[in-house]
Amino acid sequence: MNMALLFDGSLIVLILAVAVWTMAVRNSFAAVIGYATYGLLLALAWVRLAAVDAALTEAAIGGGLTSVLLIRAVVRLRSSESAARAETPGRVSRLLAAVLAGSVTAALALVVLTLPEPAPTLAPQVAANIASTSLGNAVTGVLLSFRAIDTLLEAVVLVFALIAVWTLTPDPLWGGRPGPRYELDENGMLAYLARLLPPLGIVVAVYVLWVGADLPGGKFQAGTLLAAMWLLAIMAGLVEAPPISQRWLRGALVLGTVVFLAIGFAGVPLAGAFLAYPEGHAKPLIIAIEAASMLSIALTLGLLVLGPPERGA
């Protein structure tokens, strides 16, 4: 028991230290690397909080994909860094900010310490109703059955974000390919890795999706893995990023949401409500939604990292 306490204590101290360092360090590149480290440490914290699904998501998206995104950005912004840094606010505003941030922290700490005991929880209700979905993973049950609308809207969020990113395309390049052209180095290590890893990654992604019904995992984690494999192949120069005007690409982007909506509406005549599943068929339908969504999520995440088109088709 004491070992556990020691572990939790060190982890928390480490997380806070890395967070402070990420904020304080002058070099932005270092800050981004700090953030990647922070994401991985945070995933450990999630495991300690018995939220393995969240840990996987945090490690894959919070730590992994966000870091790739930020590293790419920081390299491109390097030339403007010193100019922007010169604008650091004066001592008074820093003090005010510290007071504000400090009081928010104090208020939150107070609330955390006074949270009711025993804690209110929906776990019993989830446990009582999860049988109707025949899922073993309660989190997947919440995401795809009880609170399916949130998950549906989240898929819409991803589409909106991608549309918003694409708005930033310079007019002449509309319909072009996102990201720079990556040269393939046939004998390079990266090309080797990009040939070796994706088959493995795809297997793992399908596995993560499949077990997500009963164990930690699901479409987001699997989709992120696929996105990472795709990005790896693109950055190694093995495949090209597709032009954003491609019809198949558009179709694949909305596939998950369309399947979700279709099954949702099928629930009206078959199960009596939008987003309800017919008795006994919940699990296969949910897996169908998850499989379609995984593809759309993978493509969307990958394209979000690549950014708006930068060259012609």
């Binding site: 939220a51 919070g62 929906l122 989190v139 969020v157």
Partner: peptide, 12 residues
């Protein structure tokens, strides 16, 4: 599981 699911949505 409800807040855990919300976190996943939130991270994305």
């Amino acid at each position: 599981p409800v807040p855990q699911a919300l976190v996943i949505t939130g991270i994305v």
